[in-house]
């Protein structure tokens, strides 16, 4: 019985996937990380202006006992951006993939080492690490182009392109599950059944107003309607604790992705807290057959000469999606 279960798990974990699916995941996650680093570069190096007494190293940055000089912070951010470009392009990925994940981990951990640990980038870093340890550049990459020129045949669907995607999904659901367990541990079921969520929405908006930052007028207005919050809290907690089920069923995976996306939309609308990575859907991209996005483009290429044929292709392309 146990043996059969393990065999089944093994087959599922190493189920074939096309190299393109993993490569598209690399492009999405790496592209997001690269743009994020570029957009936030000025802010990331500005931590150098915070009082040195505020330095509270965590994670990999714990090896430091004092802040780095500004030139080193800037050099590491620059290095991360360069390695990120190589990661996205799939250039010498066996080296640049792990290098980018290490530099991204360092740069973002350093940013979190000033007395305030943020939680908007955890999933991004873990996903980049997971992808950097798999064969994510065997397609849609400079490495793949070089291999083709050297006469290597395009890779066939294989288990080695499947397991990093399974890991990607496992990381996603584990992070939500941990958040749910922490709520239960710190507050019990009260978190979902009492005024806790309402108080948090009020608290978060008031402190933003008091600190002169952007707040959510909607969140402030909803605070008056006490009855709204326990159902919302219950749904959030159910989504988080039920997240691991998404690994075992296609339908549950779709429901989980939708619920988690709505959760982040709700957080944005009521607390003005933006989680761009999940809100853009990239955090959930591993649950989908990304290579089929290409099929969406095909009907547009069909000329007006064969209207009927065009419609047929359209329906064929949409059917499996």
């Amino acid at each position: 019985m146990m043996r059969r279960l393990l065999d089944r798990f093994d087959r599922a974990f190493f189920a074939e996937a096309p190299a393109e699916r993993l490569a598209i995941l690399r492009l999405l996650v790496g592209g997001f990380a690269l743009v994020y680093l570029c957009v936030r570069a000025v802010h990331l190096q500005r931590v150098g202006h915070l009082p040195p007494g505020s330095f509270r190293p965590i994670g990999v940055v714990s090896v430091l006992s004092a802040p780095l000089p500004l030139w080193a912070v800037r050099a590491l951010i620059g290095g991360a951006i360069a390695a990120g470009a190589a990661f996205v392009a799939g250039y010498r990925f066996r080296v640049t993939g792990p290098l980018f994940s290490a530099l991204l981990l360092w740069v973002l951990t350093y940013r979190n080492s000033w007395g305030m640990v943020f939680h908007t980038e955890n999933l991004l870093v873990l996903h980049v690490i997971a992808l950097s340890l798999g064969a994510a550049a065997d397609a849609l990459s400079l490495d793949a182009r070089a291999a083709r020129r050297a006469g290597v045949a395009p890779p066939a669907p294989d288990g080695r392109y499947g397991w990093p995607i399974r890991l990607f999904c496992a990381i996603t659901v584990t992070s939500y599950f941990i958040a749910g367990v922490t709520k239960l541990r710190n507050s019990g079921l009260d978190w979902a059944l009492s005024d806790i969520l309402r108080n948090y929405v009020a608290y978060d908006n008031v402190r933003k107003i008091a600190l002169g930052d952007t707040h959510s007028p909607l969140g402030g207005a909803l605070v008056r309607y006490r009855f709204l919050f326990p159902p919302l809290a219950l749904c959030s907690l159910a989504m988080e604790l039920g997240a691991p089920l998404a690994l075992f069923s296609r339908r549950i995976a779709v429901a989980f992705c939708g619920a988690a996306w709505l959760f982040h939309l709700g957080v944005l609308l009521t607390m003005a807290i933006l989680f761009p990575y999940p809100l853009l859907g990239i955090a959930f991209a591993g649950f989908f057959e990304l290579e089929k996005m290409r099929d969406l483009r095909r009907p547009r290429r069909a000329g007006p000469a064969s209207r009927t044929g065009g419609r047929e292709r359209l329906s064929q392309a949409r059917e499996p999606l």
């Binding site: 074939e16 399974r166 296609r250 779709v254 992705c257």
Partner: peptide, 21 residues
């Protein structure tokens, strides 16, 4: 677009272990 990886993990389990096979 349909759910793939997670679902496929269960859905294609019977298909065998990919490259292993």
């Amino acid at each position: 677009m349909s759910a793939g990886a997670g679902g496929e993990a269960a859905g294609t389990a019977a298909a065998g272990g990919g490259a292993a096979a």
